[in-house]
Design a binder for these strands. Sequence first.
DNA 1: CTGAAAGCGCTAACAA
DNA 2: TTGTTAGCGCTTTCAG
Lengths: 335, 335
Amino acid sequence: VSIATVSRVFNDSARVSEKTRKKVLDVAMELGYQPHASARSLARRRTEIVSAVIPMITNYFFAEVLRGVQDRMAETDFDLLVFSARTLDEVEIQLERALHRGRSAGVLLFSTPLMNGMVERLSHSGQPVVLVDSFHPSFDSISTDNRRGGELAAEHLIGIGCVHPAMIMASPDSRPASDRREGFLSALQEAGIPADDSFVISSAEGMNHGYSESSGYDAAKSLFATGRTPDGIFVTSDIQALGVMEALRELGLDVPGDIRVLGFDDIVVSKYIGLSTLRQPMYEMGSTAVQKLMDRLSSPDRPVSHTVFSPHLVARHTSAAPAGDDTSVAAGRPA
Amino acid sequence: VSIATVSRVFNDSARVSEKTRKKVLDVAMELGYQPHASARSLARRRTEIVSAVIPMITNYFFAEVLRGVQDRMAETDFDLLVFSARTLDEVEIQLERALHRGRSAGVLLFSTPLMNGMVERLSHSGQPVVLVDSFHPSFDSISTDNRRGGELAAEHLIGIGCVHPAMIMASPDSRPASDRREGFLSALQEAGIPADDSFVISSAEGMNHGYSESSGYDAAKSLFATGRTPDGIFVTSDIQALGVMEALRELGLDVPGDIRVLGFDDIVVSKYIGLSTLRQPMYEMGSTAVQKLMDRLSSPDRPVSHTVFSPHLVARHTSAAPAGDDTSVAAGRPA
DNA sequence: CTGAAAGCGCTAACAA
DNA sequence: TTGTTAGCGCTTTCAG
C-alpha cells in the first residue's frame, strides 16, 4: 500500500509482485481510483493525446477518414482532439492551437498544403506530424495517386463513348485537384483528344477549397453558360458532383442519357444516388495515418515514409454506357 | 522577470503593471514560450477540454451537429476530445473513457438513452454532462420535439393526398424514433385514418440503432414484401430515406409519381437529391449544447435546463403533390 | 520487490 | 505590483 508501488502497478512495471499488484488493483477498483491524466503527463513529460486538424468537418470525405482514425485510435491509449477549420486561414489557426502548450503528442494534418513557415513551425514544435491527403518530403504522409485517378477518369469516359469530355475541378490551389487535372488531360491527349485547359473549369474558391455542393453547382452552370456542350464531366469530388447533377437537372439534361458524370472519393451517399466515381480508400487512409503516427512516436528516428494508395473506378448509373455498349459492365448500377 | 508574474500575465490577472506585462509577453513571443497545459491543469485542478461522445460519426446528422459544436467551441479556450462509437455498447465504453482520469471538464453525450447505471456513473464522475438529442430530468439537454415532427409528417403526407401512408422507423429502442411514430400515428387518427402499428415497420437493429442507408433499404424491401402498397412513406431519418429510395427504384416505383417519401433531419445532401424532410436545427443544437455546458461550468448550481427545438417541414421533390394541387407550394423543389 | 524523495511546470495563497 | 513558497498527483531514480 505504498505510493510508488501503485504507480508501478498502473504502468505495468515488471518489478512488482503478482500479489501486491492484485491487491492494488482490487482496492483501486473499489475506490474507483484512476491515475490523473494531467499529473501523469506532467511527470512523464508526454501526453496520450493526438490532434487532428481537419479542414471542414462537414465534408463527407473527412467523416469517412475519421472513422478509420477513430477505429485505429481506439486500440491505443491515445485520445483524439479534433480541430476543424473552414478555410485555409482557419487551418493555420487551428494547427497553431493543436501545437499549443504541448497538449498533444502528435498531429494528423488533413488535406493541407504546407505553406510559408508551416514546415519550420511544425519541425520546431517537436511534435511528429503525419500528412493525410497531402505531401511534403520532410513528413510522413498518406495520399492517393491523384494523377492516376485523373487518367482513370479520362479512360473511363472515353471508354463509354464520350467525345467531348469536360472537367470541373476544385480550387487550383488544391494539389489533389490539379494532379487529377493533369492526369485527366494527359490521358485525353494520349487518346487523341486534343485536350487543353479549356476543357477544365474550376469551382469558385472560398470555403473549403471549392469542395462543396454549391461550388459544383455554380461551376456546372457557368460551364454551360459558355456555350460548351460536353457529353461527360469528370468532377474532382463526389460532393461537388451532387451540385453538378442538380445543375444538370435544372438545365433539363438527363444523366446518363445526355451527359455522364464521374465523381471522386466514393462517399457513402454516392452508392445510393448511383454516382460513378473514383474511390479513395478513405477508411484505410485514416487508420494508416494513425498507425504511422504511433510508429513514429515509438521510434522517432525512423526514416520518413510515404504511403500512396491507388484510386479505383466504381462505375454506376451516372456513367452508364448506351445500351449495347458493355465497357462498363464491371461494376454497373448496384443490384 | 519573476515566475509568478509570468503566470499572472498568462492568466490575465489584474495585479500586474502594463509595463511588465508587455515585457513578459515580448520575451515569451521571442522564446516561443507557452504555458504547459498539463502543468496548468494539474495546478488549477481543472482542464480546458470537453469530451464529445458520439454514436457513429459516419452519420451525417452528427457531422452537422459537430459543426455547431466546433464553431462555438472555437470561441472558448476549450478543446474538443471526440469519442465515437458504433453501437450502444461501444458508447458505454467510450463514455467511460471520456470520464476517465479527469481528462475533460465536461461531456457532451449524443443521442444516447441513459441506461442502467449510467446516471449514477455520470453524477459520480463529477463532470457536468449535457445530453444532445436525448432527455433525462437530471441533466441539461437539447432535443427536438419529435412527436411534433411525426405529426407534421402525417399532416404533410395527408395534405398532398396520400391515403395509404406508412412509416419506416429506426429501432424502437431509439426514443426519438418512437416519439416520431407516436406523433405520426396520432395525427393520422386525428385525420380519420384508422392508423395502428401495422402502418409502421421498424428497421433492422444493430449498428447505429437502425439509422443507416442499409437498414432503410432493408425495411423498404420487407415493407413491400408484405404486400402492402403505401402511397407515401415517412422515414425517421434522411440517411435511411436514401436506402428507401434506392429500394423503391429497384421495385420500379417512381418517386413522387407512385409514392412520396418524407425524411427527417435535412442533412446537406437532402437538398441535392430533392428529398423532402423535417428539418432539425442541427447546427444550433450543437452550438447550444456547448453553450449550456459552458454555462454550467461557470455556475454549477444553476437549475437544470432543457431546450427543445421544433422541427419544420422542408417540402421538396420527393413529396411533390400531383399537378394542380398546391398544398405543398411553400417550399417546392429548390429552384 | 518496495519505499523515500525529488521533481515535472504551473497556480495560488501569502508576504513584502 | 511583485516575489516566495507550498503544493497539484504522478513518475522515477536511488536506497533498502
